[in-house]
Design a protein around this nucleic acid. Structure first.
Lengths: 410, 410
DNA sequence: GTCCTCCGTCCTCTCGCACAACAAATTCTG
DNA sequence: CAGAATTTGTTGTGCGAGAGGACGGAGGAC
């Protein structure tokens, strides 16, 4: 992903340098390992400039040099290029994925490698501070083996709900029954730390992760539609996250679908969510209410799809058609329990989409499953926490925390 | 508006310079006239740097110096700052607004001033080459008084239809009954010229114009919903046009609205357009079919709204709710005949929106009328034609044409 | 009328990137 | 197998762009 600068500003020399340094790091982060020669080609800068930038990253302890021999097998003539990769004790973030029934916490290094992970069930009627304490405990678990030199850049949190982008306040998380919760503050207080916390919607983060390291690498216009009790979407357009004025963009679950339909918890009637939401599907397949949170597993254990389930697939396709018409994505990624649903009634979904979408946007769109499985949102949470590093590596390391392992152990 | 660079690239010194020069010009263009001191503050660059940039623009003949006396009345102490404004014989573009029943062509200077304009009726069953010839004739009209030194930067065209952004091909214009028309080539051939032609959807351009010089100046997340026989929307998010993979984003007219509703020309049933499109409204107010293209005027002559019209207003509000949920804009601008409709049944529209939108996105959104009246799309066409000038003024002037007046007169 | 504030201009300095030359490492070719 | 060809890393130099300070000018505040 790319970030956008505030428009109208001039480009300073210092700014250009920061941008170049961050962009080099972004490439290393995205590719895992990359040669200087490739960086030269990708960024359009001179060899010597790339060398200077890489050297600076090395001096900062972020990356390390790889001998040419270790790299990929040679192609073509010429001296092999030295590789750049994330340092062994490089910076890391903590990613938190708050699900409807469990919380997953992982320590994720720059470069996207999951270094440690832990998870625990979360009661859906839990108070925010209880969940925060549980998450803090999981965080303590995953920082046990942190090397002394490694720095914590920040914490990223994925939440199934509406998150205000200006301050990360969770305005509404229906499944957790939260209203206006400042979850970042709660977790930091429980940890006794002060690091940057970034919070965003789970579908938005799913889209981000699939764009950076999933099935949509190189695709600049994609939508991640997530079935997660509620239905939401994360949108990336032109390679940038679509946030909207407050950060609430992508609430496709409450698109009007059938005004004669069922009542929705939002107060309206016939929202798309009332047809393809978890409760609707559970009803269609006679799944007990207490297993709605594990709907994906229930669906995975399904054999031949029932007519009701086929109808749900068609409804999913019809709703996707509206989304495709409105956003004109190149790729639609079906996350959450839509993965399992698509495996069962894929043809119905495709047909529903093809029947209702306009020809022009339809011809360039493809429907796919996530490349990161159920970790999309978790990895997306890591991405937003890492983001400051790509905007200004030096500044981000300045606010980063060293020795987190010992600090949290005490 | 701002443009986005291809991500992943490095920032060159030359690139930074071009960007700064273009940004200065963008500010002058946006403000009409601006002082060097203001530029210094806005762009965050040094006085001497701004001076160098302004001098370069003057040397290029794009801007001219304004004595401090002529400027705005002084505020505060200190030496007054010299102003910068677009030169009298500065660059200009030709903007074309293809409507459903008429074509408007204007010569528009950098800075957004309409210098000359002309219009002619267009038969809705006209072949593309006929319309192209008519437009070429109008263009000849508006370049009659062009000063010799002034340069034509390009031609911008607003089309009520789906336009492919990669090459400007008009994929589909329902009201003109066009399929896959290369209108840019047709007009250039009729003129015997070779200048850059930019083509885009009318609602997209309406949004752009309202963002740059209309009611949404300073608003970075807005939607321009245009009623223009068909219903479409232009979206600006984060200050950037939302285009989608092919450029077709914003087709809100075919959002599913009422699956039990009327058949739509797109082949589906109950699209939003079948409830708030021109034909639906015409039917509701018993307006004859041949006056549908002038629906805005018909509505303007209306007194007390009928119940059917009130219901249409509610349907408009309900559809806007879906749009607000999905895009989370700060402002929704109602263009085309929705202007007239809103004047009649504004309360119904507002109520429909408030009843169906989610609280979070609803609280920050406002419904407004266009600040540019019916010229939104025309001025937006001028903006996309001017865009290259803000990306790289020197290069854009390099491809610009001098002496267009005499060349087209002969 | 004097002081203060702010602005434009000029000059110098610094910094970042490009470029060229050379050395090194590898493949290709005869 | 040896030399040519190719590509890359390294180093030093040059250029260009923005920053910063000194100076003078233009107006407001007292």
């Amino acid at each position: 992903m790319t970030t956008r600068r505030r428009p109208g500003l001039g480009t300073n020399q210092e700014l250009a340098r920061r941008h170049n340094l961050g962009t080099v790091l972004r490439h290393v982060h995205g590719a895992g390992q990359i040669s200087r020669a490739e960086l030269t080609g990708l960024m359009g800068l001179n060899r010597s400039t790339i060398a200077a930038l890489v050297n600076e990253l090395e001096a900062l302890g972020i990356t390390e040099r790889v001998l040419p021999v270790e790299g990929t097998p040679r192609q073509g003539a010429g001296r092999p290029s030295a590789g750049v990769r994330i340092a062994e004790q490089g910076p890391f973030v903590i990613a938190v994925d708050l699900g409807v029934d469990r919380a997953v916490v992982a320590r994720i290094g720059l470069g996207g490698r999951v270094l440690q992970r832990a998870q625990a069930p979360v009661r859906s009627d839990g108070e925010a501070w209880q969940v925060g304490a549980a998450v803090a405990g999981l965080i303590r678990c995953v920082v046990e083996e942190v090397p002394d030199a490694a720095q914590l850049v920040g914490i990223g949190v994925s939440v199934p709900g509406l998150v205000r982008n200006s301050d990360g306040l969770i305005r509404l998380a229906p499944n957790l029954e939260w209203h206006d919760v400042s979850f970042g503050g709660i977790v930091l207080a429980a940890l006794g730390l002060d690091v940057p916390v970034s919070i965003a919607n789970d579908a938005d983060l799913g889209a981000l992760a699939e764009h950076v390291r999933g099935v949509a690498v190189g695709v600049d216009d994609l939508i991640y539609v997530s079935g997660n009790v509620g239905v939401g979407a994360g949108v990336i357009t032109g390679g940038v996250r679509l946030e909207g004025a407050g950060g609430y963009a992508g609430e496709v679950g409450h698109l009007r679908f059938n005004p004669a339909g069922r009542e929705c918890h939002c107060g309206n009637r016939g929202c798309w969510e009332t047809e393809v939401g978890a409760h609707a599907i559970a009803e269609a397949i006679h799944c007990p209410t207490d297993k709605v949170a594990q709907l994906d597993e229930v669906l995975d254990g399904f054999g031949e799809p029932s007519p009701a389930l086929r109808a749900t697939g068609t409804a999913l396709g019809h709703g996707l058609a509206s989304i495709v018409n409105v956003f004109n994505p190149r790729q639609v990624v079906l996350g959450g329990y839509f993965r399992s649903l698509y495996a069962l009634v894929g043809p119905e979904v495709e047909a529903g989409l093809a029947n209702r979408a306009l020809p022009a946007p339809l011809e360039s769109v493809t429907l796919t499953l996530p490349g990161l499985g159920s970790d999309s949102s978790l990895l997306g949470a890591a991405e937003i926490a890492l983001e400051p590093l790509f905007v200004d590596p030096v500044a981000a390391l300045g606010t980063a925390l060293v020795g987190v392992g010992t600090r949290l152990a005490g």
